[in-house]
């Protein structure tokens, strides 16, 4: 049901959400927008529209009219879907007793056999904050890091006050590779102004196989950076041959360790370290990690010239 929506850009979805007056649409992620919109679309089938659609269908509508009804109901269909097929899909949707089950477009079958406690209903809201002071760094790849943070209520109040007083709150990232960090001795420092709403930031850094940490803080009147939170140490993965010239070995029978100067008996890797799934393959058409999700339920578009079976 949400298939059509997924093809749309975030901008288009926001536009749609605005039209149907979904609350807080402007700060929603794509997945949230799709959820809200598909919910909107199914919940729109109130008794009155149900009746009116049924009467439209009784009048034996043309294929394009059926397509419009189906679209209105958020039914995903193929371009070459036949008239009776569309009609059947529409009727089946209208006949469904528990439309809310279909909200995520995932479940099928009848309603749960056992009574379900309220808390496990399929629509759930996650806490927007755990009200704890934390700044976490996660490695994305050799040149990108991701940071997210969360504030306690006191910290939130402080950050709000700072921005009201035009003292910008900054995310500072330090390159501390092979250093014992003392608060200022980094190889390099990057600074980004952060706003109150987004609680994450992706940072491009200079080197692979390097260590970074970040602080959130502000400049006081004297122009001194005052840190409020410090992150964990986060390392970018290596992306080239190590320059160490030593090989360490162990004789497994004698449990004897020895070292040798490195000799490479293999040619330098010619393939980039791409990981299996990025091998571009026309035949693959799906990412590697799980062939089943990406193919099992894929939306098919069969040419209109398809011979009739």
């Amino acid at each position: 049901m949400s298939g059509e929506l997924e093809k749309k850009s975030v901008e288009e979805l926001k536009e749609m959400a605005k039209k149907v007056k979904i609350k807080g649409y402007y700060k929603m992620r794509k997945s949230e927008l799709i959820e809200a919109l598909s919910e909107e679309q199914t919940s729109n089938v109130d008794e009155e529209s149900r009746k009116s659609i049924l009467s439209e269908i009784e009048k034996n509508p043309k294929i394009y009219e059926l397509r419009n009804i189906a679209k209105r109901l958020g039914i995903t269909f193929q371009r070459n879907a036949r008239k009776d097929e569309l009609k059947e899909r529409i009727l089946r949707l209208l006949a469904r007793p528990g439309l809310e089950i279909k909200r995520f477009g995932i479940s099928s079958g009848p309603a749960p056999e056992k009574s379900v406690p309220v808390s496990s209903s399929s629509y759930v809201d996650l806490p927007s904050s755990y009200y704890r002071d934390t700044l976490q760094g996660l490695p994305v790849n050799p040149s990108w890091l991701s940071f997210y943070w969360d504030f306690s209520k006191q910290m939130s109040a402080l950050v709000d006050r700072l921005s009201r007083e035009n003292q910008p709150v900054m995310l500072r990232v330090y390159d501390v590779t092979f250093l014992i960090f003392n608060g200022s001795n980094a190889h390099r420092i990057w600074e980004y102004r952060i706003n109150g709403k987004e609680k994450k930031y992706y940072v491009q850094v200079a080197s692979p196989a390097a260590s970074y940490l970040a602080e959130i803080g502000y400049y006081n009147e004297a122009g001194v950076f005052v840190p409020l939170l410090r992150s964990n140490l986060v390392k970018t993965p290596a992306s080239s041959l190590s320059n160490r010239q030593e090989e360490r070995w162990i004789d497994l029978a004698k449990h004897l360790r020895f070292t040798q100067t490195h000799i490479s008996l293999v040619s330098q890797p010619t393939l980039l370290p791409t990981g299996l799934s990025s091998l571009s393959s026309e035949e693959m058409r799906s990412s590697f990690s799980s062939v089943l999700f990406s193919t099992g339920n894929a939306q098919k578009t069969i040419s209109d010239k398809e011979p009739k079976e």
Binding site: V140, P142, T274, G275, S278
Partner: peptide
């Protein structure tokens, strides 16, 4: 080295 078999080899 830190690595995965995902697209581009990392996270």
């Amino acid at each position: 080295a830190d690595s995965t078999w995902g697209a581009n080899g990392y996270n």
